Computed example of a mutant assay.
Amino acid sequence: MPGEAGRPRSPRTRVSALVALAVLAGAGALLYDAVSEWTGHHTGSWRHWLAHQLSTRHLDSPWALAGAAVVAALGLWLLVLAVAPGERRWLPLRQAPGSAVDRLGVAALLERRVCAEPMVASARVRVGRRRARVTVHGSADLDRARVVLNEELDRIGLVRPPALTVRGRRARHRPHMH
């Protein structure tokens, strides 16, 4: 989708699409030769032998069924790889189309920003493609933490900022040993 800032695609998408097309072309050529052999027309030398084997074997033979299952599974896997979105750990940036930032990097930025707030002992941040979950340990104002985190997400400039969920937990107090 040219001109649209979408999720980056993995290079495997093009490669698997080319492999799937090559397999499809090879299967089409074999099917053409098998039909030619079956209708009495002649094909090339090795293709003649292969087409003869394919046209005379019963479809319920174990070798034919196993070969068909392997080819079907390989083809299905290649199609899944070709259409599956790639690079899921990257989130596209609004300011520079085609560039992206790692979800772990966004989580680190959010954690650093919320830990700078007063009364925050620590924070745990998990950033997904659609949601950012922040657990603040301490007695911080959660509304203030939400505002600060939303400002940080705006500063980062993601194309689709994740929905923010902020929860609070009391910091654990460890007894002092004397």
Rank of each mutant, 00 (worst) to 15 (best):
H42L: 12
T43V: 15
T43D: 06
G44A: 15
G44P: 14
G44E: 15
S45E: 15
S45P: 12
S45I: 12
S45H: 13
W46G: 07
W46L: 12
W46C: 07
R47M: 12
R47V: 11
R47L: 13
W49I: 08
W49P: 00
A51Q: 01
H52F: 14
H52V: 11
H52P: 00
Q53G: 02
L54I: 00
T56M: 01
R57T: 07
R57K: 09
H58A: 15
H58Q: 14
L59C: 12
D60T: 15
D60L: 12
S61P: 01
S61T: 14
S61R: 14
S61W: 08
W63M: 08
A64N: 06
A66N: 09
G67R: 13
A68S: 14
A68E: 07
V70H: 03
A72F: 13
A72K: 08
A72Y: 09
L76N: 06
W77C: 09
L78I: 04
L78Q: 10
L78H: 02
V80N: 09
V80A: 08
L81T: 03
A82Q: 00
A82T: 12
V83S: 03
V83G: 02
A84C: 09
A84L: 08
P85R: 01
G86D: 06
G86E: 05
E87V: 02
E87I: 04
R88Y: 05
R88S: 00
R89Q: 04
R89S: 05
W90G: 00
W90P: 04
P92A: 10
P92D: 01
L93E: 06
L93N: 05
L93Y: 03
R94P: 06
Q95R: 13
A96F: 11
P97F: 14
P97D: 10
P97Y: 10
S99R: 14
S99D: 08
S99W: 07
A100D: 02
A100Y: 07
A100E: 02
V101L: 09
V101Q: 03
V101D: 01
D102Y: 09
L104H: 14
V106P: 01
V106M: 05
A107I: 01
A107K: 00
A107C: 04
A107V: 03
A107D: 06
A108F: 01
A108L: 01
A108K: 09
A108W: 02
L109D: 06
L109A: 04
L110W: 04
